[in-house]
Nucleic acid binder design. Structure first.
Lengths: 361, 361
DNA sequence: GTAAGGTGGGAAAGCGCATTCCCAGTGTCT
DNA sequence: AGACACTGGGAATGCGCTTTCCCACCTTAC
């Protein structure tokens, strides 16, 4: 990558580099119109493209914002990324992307890389983890983030804060009311469903998953229902699918048993996120079961691809793009702005997958 | 963003900046082990993070790769982005993301921004356009790209080249055999379907769309079938949906007519990409029609979210991630490498949505 | 008419790093 | 023992830009 430089432009225009800089890259001082014109046309004829690296070096602000996601092709993260991208554009910044599959060690590396590039701010999406095997990784990540913040970087993390992160300055958490919403979902489901509840959760220690599980259980408890059974699996579609297969077997068995005794009670499945719910639902269908006839199911997030899933899946709507936007804005604020950060809100969205507590025959 | 610098580290370690640079940021010359250790521990205790901007400036190579997509939340682009990300990681580079909604003017801007950041290479995904209203935008984009290439940048564009781009050096096109595959799809469908064919296409002038339409028509012609009717709409789900609604009305009307006369002939719908196919299918369903009973339908791309769509959609599988990877690799090659670029191949994937030419009643 | 205050331009000092060049010290070959 | 190539370290230069400081010139006010 070679390209013409500012001084070349200046020389061609017959002015000093200082002047050329002032006219081309916005400064407080505006050179005279005739000179400005000369410089501009010189730049044009040379095909001058300012070197952002050098600019960043000189004024120590890179106009970069780092985004960390588990997987950019996951609709959940893709939606957040879209919001981030949008907000970044508003701020005139560019987005640096890193995908980490949720591994704290990789996340640490990504933060270091962002720091090296002197990104003005970093947005971390993706569930934080408190799993024992992630302890060390988390510690490293927290240390890296602290260092980044100490150096004046701004961090926004979606959901929960990083375990062990101690920074008070420049460290923002965009809180998502996972627990409350899960509780509300449980309450609404409990209002019409009177059978067994099963939660398909992620690995223990994943905050997002744990919060939603806790919330759901609380919601049941508030309705004086016994806690749901919890089955843990991976936080992915295939995790949901596996559990779905197991549940299908169980459902069939209980249907066979009930066949003689009389009424069948459907179970209600709550998967802690939509992709898991989709996996589970696909498994049930693959096993010849129908939703909501043989079981009802709900997810969480309301990802866009849910729109075309059949049956329409009940879920909790989260404004994913808005979350991305807000995280970006929070991290982009110049310290002074103390506008009250608008809280993230979601809402329960009941669809056909949880229809009819007692199925009309 | 302030941070400790290399000279601070050097001073603390009691060596010269040159030496510190050599030990910390890989150089041909390896300082002695004792010195190296001193430097390393000094760096550690200072929390030194090399300034990539400065490094880039000094060695004029930024380690950045720019990615341009229409919409990062679209599963098609998300899959490509995943591949790009992966390949970038292999190369030790970071991905800069820009989304443009396909507007050439925005794309030009993105290229300029990448050029400013001295990105080593740029990957452009997303259909190129030859629409008259994009003429000017395309010209600008082509000029910007030419300039970028002339300055030593590497460009890889997925599908078709940018209209008007003249660079021979550093300009790669990852060709996707849209036409051949569409022809093959048409042939396979024609083998068992004997009714009317309708193509839901994007705006005229969109290469991807036009190629697929042309290929499909050729495939029909090769089977001695009359060309399909073409309905153009937006290159999005909602475009597909709108057309789907219109088609549903037509199907119903023809069914009503056939009711008296006897046999009904289903139409076969080919949507030039999967999201449009999904939209159309959703519309048919919303109108009470069933696939493949009332119409059969096929898409193109085999995006990941198709997996959970019912009925399973026939489509043409494209190795999207691989496309992203390959584009990135091509753009990342240091000129010398003249490895034969492995061609992109896809294959027709028939699923239930096009099942049963003559439905068993 | 002169002093005070603008104005518009240039010179120069970095920003943080890589790298070339130089130099002192060590070892090897004849 | 002397010339020789190495080796490992430091000084200095420059990457492309911003920004302070400075200077010459022109206004304006008294």
């Amino acid at each position: 990558m070679v390209a013409s430089t500012l001084s070349e432009v200046a020389r061609l225009a017959g002015v000093s580099p200082a002047t050329a800089s002032r006219v081309l890259n916005g400064s407080a001082r505006k050179p005279g119109p005739d000179i400005a014109e000369r410089v501009r046309s010189a730049a044009e004829s040379l095909g001058y493209v300012p070197n952002a690296q050098a600019q960043a070096l000189a004024k120590s602000s890179s106009g970069l914002i780092g985004l960390i996601v588990h997987d950019i092709a996951d609709p959940y993260f893709a939606a957040i990324a879209r919001g981030v991208q949008e907000a970044a554009r508003e701020q005139g910044r560019m987005v640096l992307l890193a995908t980490t599959a949720g591994a704290p060690a990789d996340e640490r590396e990504a933060v270091a890389a962002f720091a090296a590039r002197r990104a003005d701010s970093i947005v971390i999406a993706g569930s934080r983890s408190a799993r024992p095997e992630d302890r060390q990784g988390n510690a490293g990540l927290a240390a890296e983030l602290d260092r980044y913040c100490r150096n004046g970087g701004q961090v926004a993390v979606v959901g929960h804060g990083v375990v062990g992160a101690a920074s008070t300055e420049g460290y923002h958490v965009v809180t998502v009311p996972n627990e409350e919403l899960a509780a509300k979902l449980a309450a609404e489901l409990a209002a019409s469903h009177h059978g067994h509840f099963v939660i398909i959760g992620g690995p223990a220690g994943l905050f997002t998953s744990d919060d939603r599980i806790r919330g759901f259980q609380r919601g049941l408890a508030d309705t004086a229902l016994p806690p749901a059974e919890i089955i843990r699996t991976e936080f992915t579609r295939s995790g949901g699918f596996d559990v779905g297969i197991a549940l299908a077997a169980r459902i069939k068995a209980s249907q066979a048993a009930a066949n003689t005794s009389g009424d069948t009670k459907r179970i209600c499945i709550f998967a802690v996120n939509d992709v898991m719910a989709i996996g589970a639902a696909a498994a049930l269908r693959a096993e010849g079961l129908r939703i909501p006839r043989d079981a009802i199911i709900a997810g969480f997030d309301d990802i866009e691809s849910l729109r075309d899933f059949r049956p329409p899946l009940s879920t909790v709507h989260l404004p994913l793009e808005e979350i991305g936007r807000q995280a970006t804005r929070r991290a982009g604020e110049t310290a002074g702005e103390n506008a009250v950060p608008p809280a993230i809100t979601g809402h329960v969205t009941l669809r056909r997958s949880t229809e009819g507590a007692f199925p009309a025959p």
